[in-house]
Simulated assay, not measured.
Amino acid sequence: MRILVVEDDRRTADYIAKGLIEAGHVCDVIDDGHDALFQATREQYDVMVVDRMVPGLDGLSVVKAVRAAKIKTPAIFLTSVGGVDDRVEGLEAGGDDYLTKPFAFSELLARVNALARRPPVQDQKTLLKIADLALDLIRRQVTRHGQPIELQPREFTLLEVLMRGEGRVLTRTMLLERVWDFHFDPKTSVVETHISRLRAKIDKPFEVPLLHTVRNTGYCLHAPR
Rank of each mutant, 00 (worst) to 15 (best):
L198T: 04
D35G: 15
E7W: 05
H25A: 04
L4C: 03
L162Q: 06
F182T: 02
N113Q: 15
M163L: 14
G167C: 11
E43N: 12
R140G: 12
V49S: 01
I195W: 01
A69E: 02
T171M: 01
N216P: 00
F184P: 01
L211E: 04
G165T: 00
E177T: 07
D51A: 01
D35V: 04
E160R: 13
R10C: 10
V208W: 06
D97E: 10
R197M: 08
L37V: 07
E150A: 07
P186V: 10
H145R: 10
M53D: 10
D185P: 07
D31I: 02
R164N: 10
S189C: 09
D181Q: 08
G83T: 15
L108I: 02
P148S: 08
D123R: 11
R10T: 12
P186N: 14
N216H: 12
V191G: 05
S106Y: 09
I3Q: 01
D132E: 11
P205Q: 06
E160S: 11
L91W: 05
T171V: 08
V169Q: 10
T126I: 12
F206L: 12
A110P: 01
F103R: 09
Y15F: 13
D136W: 09
I16P: 03
D96F: 09
D9V: 11
G95Y: 03
V84G: 12
P148L: 06
V121E: 15
R118T: 13
G146R: 06
L109P: 04
K64H: 07
T41W: 03
T193G: 05
Q147R: 13
E160W: 01
I149G: 01
L170S: 09
S189V: 07
